[in-house]
């Protein structure tokens, strides 16, 4: 289970690289909006990419509680395990 979370986190960080320069470090605590400057529209598009990567449905309502990389990874992980 833990390794599954790690796998999610790794893939997510890979996706998030498109929003940063190559030398910016993304950690679980990185704030998506304030540090990566992912605005609401970009976040919605990122969610579609994540849905396709993990073959899951991520309702955008769930994003209200998501601020950091860790929170997004947890959400994805939860949806995957509930499947």
């Amino acid at each position: 289970m833990a390794s599954d979370y790690t796998d999610v986190l790794q893939k997510l960080c890979h996706h998030l690289k498109q929003f940063t320069g190559p030398d910016v470090e993304i950690t679980p605590d990185t704030d998506l909006i304030n540090q990566l400057a992912i605005d609401s529209v970009k976040l919605l598009n990122l969610i579609m990419e994540i849905e396709d990567e993990f073959d899951i449905s991520v309702p955008i309502n769930a994003l209200a509680d998501v601020q950091t990389v860790h929170e997004l990874a947890t959400l994805i992980h939860q949806i995957r395990t509930a499947k």
Partner: peptide, 21 residues
């Protein structure tokens, strides 16, 4: 309700999301 978006006018994308449901 749970809100899911599909890529604009992309029917392959819509079907993928329907299938997942």
């Amino acid at each position: 309700a749970e809100i899911i978006r599909f890529r604009h006018n992309d029917m392959v994308d819509l079907e993928k999301r329907l299938r997942r449901l």
